[in-house]
């Protein structure tokens, strides 16, 4: 095959995918902002996406904060800057690692789950059945999941921020001889409101992206059990890539 043609075909496929994801997102948003709403579905998703993700997000945040403190301490010691541990841990967690790590964990837990569930519904004609019961699948299935993602991620990330900083605090006060009150005061002093808020805005965007990817790949799943598996994999991979890309874009906007 002519290499130019291969590149061209690749670009076209990518553009086509981007177009159909965008169109899907527009339909989902249109369904989310206009009634009828399915409140019960939304509550269920808030519980499944939010509450049930707490252990995973909490544990990863704790370990990340702890490891971050140790690394900054070792690095800082090379130019006598060990005392900056609390400041850098706080900024690193709140502005960057809290949102990104929580979102990545949720891409693994939630995007794949959504894609598999909706993909299986597609494969077993349940989405067609919704249609024949005069119910728009966009409203009943898709919108509640995406709205739940946008609401829940900032809350989860806020909790991850607190736990992550606490992880750094635990390591610093127990093994690195930091004074507890000084550590807390430094953390509070360094953080500005915008540090926290910008992290939470990132979180909301990530929540949108990771639920959107789960829904999109599940909704368009084709070909039985194999297709469902493929949808779940594609959902996780595309969600993770989009999260990193969006993180870079938002960070460059926010600095």
């Amino acid at each position: 095959m002519n290499p130019l043609r291969a590149v061209g075909a690749g670009v076209l496929t990518l553009l086509h995918a981007a177009g159909s994801v965008t169109w899907f997102a527009i339909r989902a948003l249109a369904a989310a902002v206009r009634p009828p709403w399915f409140g019960g579905q939304l509550l269920g998703q808030l519980f499944r996406i939010g509450f049930l993700s707490l252990p995973v997000v909490g544990l990863t945040a704790l370990f990340t904060g702890a490891a971050l403190a140790l690394n900054i301490y070792t690095g800082g010691a090379r130019f006598n800057a060990e005392s900056f541990v609390p400041n850098i841990v706080a900024l690193g967690i709140v502005r960057e690692l809290g949102p990104v790590i929580a979102a990545l964990m949720l891409a693994g837990r939630v995007s794949s789950g959504i894609a598999a569930e909706i993909g299986a519904m597609r494969a077993t004609e349940q989405i067609d059945a919704l249609h024949t019961l005069s119910t728009d699948p966009m409203r009943y299935l898709i919108a509640p999941r995406i709205v739940a993602g946008v609401i829940v991620l900032p809350i989860l990330v806020f909790i991850a921020d607190v736990i992550g900083v606490f992880g750094g605090f635990l390591v610093s006060t127990n093994t690195l001889d930091f004074d507890a009150t000084v550590y807390v005061r430094n953390t509070v002093d360094i953080l500005e409101r915008w540090d926290v808020i910008s992290g939470l805005i990132k979180a909301a965007v990530f929540g949108f992206l990771l639920t959107l990817m789960g829904c999109y790949h599940g909704y368009n799943a084709q070909g039985g059990a194999q297709g469902v598996g493929r949808a779940a994999t594609n959902a996780v991979v595309s969600a993770a890539v989009l999260i990193f890309a969006a993180n870079f874009l938002l960070t460059s906007l926010f600095v």
Partner: peptide
């Protein structure tokens, strides 16, 4: 899904297609 014709139809799918949730 709100087509007035389709809204009159009750459908039994060959596979059942019940919502398993």
């Amino acid at each position: 899904e709100d087509d007035p014709g389709v809204a009159q139809i009750g459908m039994l799918f060959q596979s059942g297609a019940l919502f398993d949730s």
